[in-house]
């Protein structure tokens, strides 16, 4: 009985997602008359709005580049910093940690104006690098906050033994410690990717040229405030949802543990 209620609750909650995907396969006539299960599957919307429109592929590629770039840069900067803050003798640790924690609370929208000003001066608007840098500013503090406890949990004996055996401090970090915190690193990688993929604010403000748009602003550009092409909008939404959904389904556990540790979004 509990199981039945549990399943029904999930189905009700996720119904909008089903409705979105199924709409993209409906004919215009079926879309107008509300039908829970489509009587036939039509690929017309997908052909006309997705496959035959080269801009869609461009947007998806842009999102892949920006999200992956954000992920890589966040890891490159975040892993050593989290390690040092957890394990190495440093002055000013409390100040740095307070800075990381308080930037979790930062609205992306607050950074948008000054970054727009600075990036305009540097010629970084309408570039992948600009978007990646902007997305990393908020993903990085989060990753450090999340990774620090993982590094702190590695028993000290491991690194001490390696140091005695003649390993350099960097060797200890790269060969001994990092492999032990792989689950934490994977969590951060997935969350940084989802973050970069979902960003709207920086895409709106820093990538105004159509060829540089990621899927979020691409979707909004196609099906903005005045659209009535809901089948097209839902097909495009499905495309924009699919990569993060696949990443999530493959790494559910990691995402859940990351969010439980204070996950921020948007």
């Amino acid at each position: 009985m509990k199981r039945v209620i549990g399943v029904v609750l999930v189905l009700v909650y996720l119904f909008p997602v089903y409705w979105m995907v199924s709409a993209s396969f409906k004919t215009p006539a079926e879309l107008a008359s509300v039908r829970l299960v489509p009587s036939s599957l039509s690929l017309d919307t997908w052909t006309a709005r997705i496959f035959d429109d080269p801009r869609v592929l461009r947007y998806v590629l842009n999102s892949v580049i920006v999200a992956s770039g954000t992920m890589v840069l966040t890891l490159v900067l975040g892993i050593p910093a989290a390690y040092a803050l957890a394990r190495l003798p440093l002055r000013g640790k409390p100040v740095l940690m307070l800075m990381m924690l308080s930037s979790l609370m930062f609205p992306a929208i607050m950074l948008a104006t000054p970054l727009f000003v600075v990036f305009s001066r540097l010629g970084l608007t309408d570039s992948y690098l600009g978007l990646i840098l902007a997305d990393t500013t908020l993903a990085l503090p989060y990753s450090i906050v999340l990774l620090r406890p993982a590094f702190a949990a590695v028993p000290r004996d491991y690194s001490e033994a390696a140091l005695i055996d003649g390993c350099s401090p960097f060797g200890v970090f790269a060969r001994i410690i990092v492999p032990l915190v792989m689950p934490g690193i994977a969590t951060v990688a997935v969350l940084a990717f989802l973050w970069g993929w979902g960003d709207l604010v920086f895409a709106l403000t820093l990538a105004t040229e159509d060829s540089m748009r990621p899927v979020t602003t691409g979707l909004w550009g196609f099906f903005g405030a005045t659209t009535s092409d809901w089948a097209g909008a839902m097909a495009f939404s499905t495309v924009a949802m699919l990569p993060p959904l696949v990443v999530f389904l493959l790494t559910q556990r990691l995402v859940v543990s990351g969010v439980a540790a204070g996950g921020t979004k948007g």
Binding site: V10, Y13, L14, P16, V17, W19, M20, L194, W197, G198, L200, V215, T216, L219, W220, F223, A233, M234, S237, A240, M241, P244, L245, V247, F248, L249, Q252, V255, V256, V259, G263, K265, G266
Partner: peptide, 16 residues
């Protein structure tokens, strides 16, 4: 499974 709604970009949910 509820976390699916978290993984979907907010833009997509809003459009939906």
């Amino acid at each position: 499974l509820y976390m699916i709604a978290y993984a979907i970009p907010v833009v997509v949910s809003a459009e939906l």
